[in-house]
Amino acid sequence: MLRASPLTQSIGASPVSTALAREGHPISVVEFDELPADSSHRLEIEDGRLLVMNRPAGPHIKAAQRLVSHLNDQLPDELEAMLEFQAELVGASPRRIPDVVVCGADACDQVRVRAEQILLAIEIVSPGESAARDYIKKPAEYAANGIPNTWVIDIQENPLSLTVYTLDDTGQYHFTSPMTGRYTGAIGGHEVTIDLDALTGPRRKRN
Rank of each mutant, 00 (worst) to 15 (best):
K138A: 10
S161Y: 06
G146V: 00
P178Y: 07
N149W: 04
I153M: 04
H174W: 12
D169V: 14
L162N: 01
T176E: 07
M179E: 15
P139A: 09
A140Y: 02
Q156R: 14
F175M: 12
A140L: 10
A144S: 14
L162R: 09
T166N: 14
E157L: 05
Y165Q: 08
A143H: 01
E141N: 04
P159Y: 14
L160A: 09
Y165R: 11
D154A: 05
I155F: 00
E141A: 12
Y165M: 10
P148A: 10
L160I: 15
S177W: 06
D154K: 03
A140E: 15
N145R: 11
G171D: 04
T163E: 13
A143W: 08
T180W: 03
Y142S: 12
Q172W: 02
D168F: 05
D169H: 13
Y142Q: 09
I147T: 12
P159C: 11
Y173E: 04
I155P: 05
T150M: 13
D168Q: 05
N145I: 10
N158E: 15
I155N: 02
D168M: 06
E157F: 00
W151E: 08
T150S: 11
W151F: 09
L162V: 00
E157G: 00
A143Q: 09
D168E: 10
D168T: 00
T163R: 14
V152I: 11
E141Y: 00
M179F: 02
G171E: 02
S177C: 04
K137H: 07
S161I: 08
P178E: 06
V164A: 08
P148G: 02
G146N: 03
G171V: 00
T163Q: 14
H174C: 12
K138L: 12
D168L: 10
G171H: 04
A144W: 02
N149M: 13
P148H: 03
V152W: 04
T170G: 09
T150Y: 01
L167M: 03
T170L: 10
I153P: 00
Y173H: 04
I147N: 05
P148T: 05
V164Q: 14
N145L: 08
L167A: 05
T163F: 10
M179L: 14
L160E: 13
L160C: 12
N158F: 10
D154T: 09
P159L: 11
P139C: 07
T163C: 10
D154R: 03
K137V: 13
S161V: 04
Y165L: 05
D154Q: 01
T180A: 12
A143Y: 07
Y165C: 10
D154V: 01
T176L: 06
L167V: 01
T176G: 02
Y142P: 02
N145W: 02
D169Q: 15
P139N: 08
G171F: 05
S161L: 12
T180S: 12
H174R: 13
P139W: 04
D169G: 07
Y173P: 11
N149I: 01
Y142L: 01
Q156N: 13
I147P: 07
V164E: 11
T163W: 03
V152Q: 03
T166E: 15
P178M: 04
P159T: 11
A144K: 14
K138I: 10
I147Y: 01
A143K: 04
G171Q: 02
P148L: 01
T170A: 13
V152N: 03
I147D: 01
V164R: 06
N158W: 06
V152K: 00
T176C: 03
S161C: 12
E157N: 13
S161D: 06
Q172S: 05
